[in-house]
Simulated assay, not measured.
Amino acid sequence: MIYLKFALFFFPIILLSQETTFPKDFKMRSSAFLVKNYDESILNVYYIFNSIDKSNLKGKSVESVCILQIGKNFSKFSDTSRLRLDSLMTKYSRQDNIGSVEINDLLRYKILWSGVSLKDFKEKKVTHQNTVAGKIYQYDEGVPEQIWQLKNEVKIVLGYKCNKAILKYRGRIYTAWYAREISINNGPYIFQGLPGLILEIQDQDNYVHFTAKGIDRKLMDIYLENNQSILNVNREKYREIRKNYFDNPSAFIYGTAYNQDGTPIISKPIHTSVYNPLELE
């Protein structure tokens, strides 16, 4: 376990507003930040993540770069911006105080794929972490069953000959392209279960689309944040919390307010589209 110091204990809340800046004379003292190492990657796959339906971005197309770090016993999928932020936080944690220069530097990075997923090969489980209203929630689940339909079609992705496969998974239908030449049972996010590495996958509505753009063998730590403030829940509870936040965000930030009859006051949603999570079921 690595022990770090980090001043921005409220940093996830700040990230909710990417336009936030701080005055030059702003300073904060550091506080503890914990990270637990699980493995070291022996292969890293970089994916372009594209989505045309992000509720908090008014349906505009967004694009980011994600990374699948594959080790001997674990793999981890996350946004590369999160890794850069963690690196900066490690650097700044060594300082007694952090000022506006460091904070504004951290705010330059936008995490568009917000979740972190850690696959445990031996235990056959996945640990998910995600942030809702500045709080990190974590839950475990067994590797979900994925029943693929293998097709005869082929295409070239990242220079590799890939075969097609179709999956109906938690309310969406996905098309994947996997490379038998890379005989690794893995892929972006939760996806796996094919006789080769998944290099491209998208759902039929193009809500989520991952395309491999590069592969390297740089040694990288596979870790998860491990602070005591992390809230451990189950998948059902996490989905309920995320939906409640979408419907009434101010209740999470300022606390629940009540009418005279005791019913909670529901704030006006800040979103411009209906709730549309990646996993519909």
Rank of each mutant, 00 (worst) to 15 (best):
S31E: 10
A32W: 05
A32L: 12
F33L: 14
V35L: 09
V35F: 01
V35S: 09
K36Q: 14
N37T: 07
D39W: 00
D39N: 00
E40M: 07
E40I: 01
L43M: 15
N44S: 08
V45K: 09
Y46C: 09
Y47F: 15
I48Y: 06
I52Q: 11
D53F: 15
N56A: 05
L57A: 12
K58L: 08
K60Y: 12
K60S: 10
V62W: 03
V62T: 08
V62K: 11
S64H: 04
C66Q: 04
L68A: 05
Q69K: 13
Q69H: 01
G71L: 00
G71E: 01
G71Q: 02
K72L: 04
N73F: 00
F74Y: 03
F74R: 03
F74M: 02
S75M: 01
S75K: 02
K76I: 08
F77A: 06
S78E: 11
S78F: 01
D79S: 09
R82D: 00
R82L: 03
L83F: 01
L85Y: 05
S87Y: 02
L88F: 12
R94Q: 15
R94G: 10
G99W: 01
S100R: 07
V101W: 11
V101S: 12
N104I: 06
D105Q: 12
L107C: 11
L107F: 09
I111C: 05
L112M: 13
S114E: 11
S114C: 00
G115Y: 01
G115N: 12
V116I: 14
L118D: 12
K119M: 08
K119F: 12
D120W: 03
K122Y: 04
K122F: 02
K125M: 09
N130R: 10
V132N: 03
A133G: 09
K135M: 07
I136K: 12
I136P: 07
I136L: 07
Q138E: 15
D140R: 12
E141H: 03
G142A: 14
V143Y: 04
E145F: 05
E145V: 13
Q146V: 09
I147C: 06
W148M: 05
K151S: 14
N152A: 13
E153R: 15
E153A: 13
K155N: 05
K155G: 06
I156T: 14
C162F: 06
C162R: 02
A165W: 02
I166Y: 07
I166E: 14
L167I: 10
Y169W: 15
Y169C: 03
R170N: 11
R170I: 05
R170M: 12
G171Q: 08
R172K: 10
R172V: 05
